[in-house]
Design a protein around this nucleic acid. Structure first.
Lengths: 208, 208
DNA sequence: CTCGAATTGTACACCCGTGTTCAATCGTGA
DNA sequence: TCACGATTGAACACGGGTGTACAATTCGAG
């Protein structure tokens, strides 16, 4: 991925996030990327698939970084951190946050990211009897995490809460719903949050 | 609202829900409504505001019916029912469900619906010390309910769970996160769900 | 410095949706 | 049955986006 492609890519994320629409005119995209219109056609296969590609790449990058950071052996703690990674990043990179927030509901790649990332922490926690959670609640629990994470990101993006409040609050509520005692849930959700490791693949870098 | 307007309105909901896009061409809309293109311009102010109007009307109708059904004096029970009303209706009227699911995140009217409807049940429950919920968790709790409801609707719309499973599961998890004991949460979330009363305003009727 | 590749900006034909017009037709109440 | 209002469907000009082409220019590796 050369520099022009990266600029186009970044501009696409920005436009998608700002106007909340899958469709972006090639002219707008070129202008936002600071590039001539013809360059767009030289550097992307087709504008039609641009959104999917951007979403998939963004999901892949986040997934890699989050899973790279799972040295914590307590699944509950890892689950809390997973949620908070998303919320903190929405604060640090708002256009990233808006993109995930706006399209996380409808896009497959992003939904897989939101569902799949915490999934390990759930099943491992269930295996170890870390949670008080019946088998039949598992699918709903997964969905709840995705929904709670997205809305917590929204609170931050809109400025209604700080990322610490929203992230810790969301994590704490999720843990409590899984049967973790209130005090422990709070402690886990408010612990220091490690930085997300940088991505190893340079193609997946996202400029803020 | 005459018959043509209602047909256009219903067709708009269907198209919006199916293709997940705010923009619908007048030709498509006319065809979906089984009406000539010119008739569209005679019956709506402008296609530009159609989406907002449809969303606002739909939100208003649902809000009215849900709040009309709050004779239950236990806020926790009412909260569980509120969530389940949405999930059940997503099952009964899938195009209604897809519309709310797809746009509930981004549209103000729908977000107000998802946030505002259960809000009373929360604040009243907090006032009565029904929940074990710190003050600072309230904003996140509201957001969590909206997100959990939407994702539970998705589970139903996609056929991954029945509306009973998804609705009761979501309600149970929410109540547990609010400090309701697991057994009681389950009982409240699995109780018989009363039917939604029909809307009083004929303009707000939605054809399935 | 030089050469080749990429980028630039403009031009062009094409398609699609828009918003409007209008005569013909329909249908419903009187 | 009649009359009037609404609906129909075709036509039209217009704007904007698309995809392609191409000469001029810029850029970067050697």
């Amino acid at each position: 991925m050369n520099q022009a492609q990266r600029r186009i890519h970044d501009a696409a994320i920005r436009l998608f996030a700002e106007q909340g629409n899958h469709r972006v005119s090639v002219s707008d995209l070129a202008q936002a990327a600071g590039v001539a219109r013809g360059t767009i056609y030289n550097n992307i296969e087709t504008p039609e698939y641009l959104f999917e590609q951007v979403a998939a790449q963004l999901a892949s990058e986040m997934h890699e970084r989050v899973t790279a950071c799972d040295q914590d052996s307590d699944p509950a703690h890892r689950l809390a951190n997973d949620i908070r990674f998303f919320v903190r990043r929405a604060h640090e990179e708002p256009q990233w946050g808006w993109f995930v927030y706006r399209f996380g509901i409808n896009n497959d790649s992003l939904r897989d990211l939101l569902n799949g990332t915490p999934m390990r922490a759930i099943v491992k926690g269930v295996d170890r009897h870390r949670y008080d959670l019946r088998e039949d609640l598992l699918p709903g629990a997964m969905a709840m995490i995705a929904g709670t994470t997205l809305t917590a990101m929204w609170m931050v993006l809109e400025g209604h809460q700080t990322w610490r409040e929203a992230g810790s609050g969301a994590a704490e509520l999720v843990l409590r719903s899984f049967g973790i005692a209130a005090e422990e849930a709070r402690r886990l959700a408010e612990s220091d949050l490690p930085p997300l490791p940088p991505t190893t693949s340079p193609d997946l870098h996202v400029v803020s």
